[in-house]
Amino acid sequence: MLTEDDRRLLHLLSQDCRLTPEEISIQTGLTPDYINKKTKQWEKDKVILKYSVLVNYEQLEEDRVTAQIDLKVAPQRGQGYDKIAQRFQKFPEIKSVYLMSGDFDLSLLVEGKNMHGIAQFVSDKLSPLDFIETTSTRFILRRYKQDGIEFFGEEERPKRLMITP
């Protein structure tokens, strides 16, 4: 179980991983020592996997498309879903792999330069795999919100009076 302090620490780091232990210390009352020790431990335990940046590529007019590919698979003897999923996660083009409830079994997020590239990837790498029964590929057209961050729309900073009681 996370303590309230640790929950706060994780929350702050996931909001802004550039905060230094000293800054976090000011903002939480935890000591820099504790913060250092805790984050190191989390890194070691693979609780913190990566400190990353969320990029809005559309703003850069970069060519980049993402497809969500849902797969129905037939696990083979000695090859459960985990085995199959591990096989997929080796492809660098595949950014996310999820085991799903519902009509499909696995869901992949695949990134490429364009639709053609992704189609190529599907036909070259996925289709030949004999444990795949059916696939459904849908392209993401626009990203409105990801990881809690809104990509478009006006930031909400309501206008307040300059001084109020």
Binding site: R160, L161, M162, I163, T164, P165
Partner: peptide
């Protein structure tokens, strides 16, 4: 309030909301 309202680029720490 009257004084502050006449100025621009003010960062106001005067708001009670």
């Amino acid at each position: 309030f009257d004084l502050a309202s006449t100025m621009e680029d003010v960062i106001s720490l005067g708001v009670g909301e």
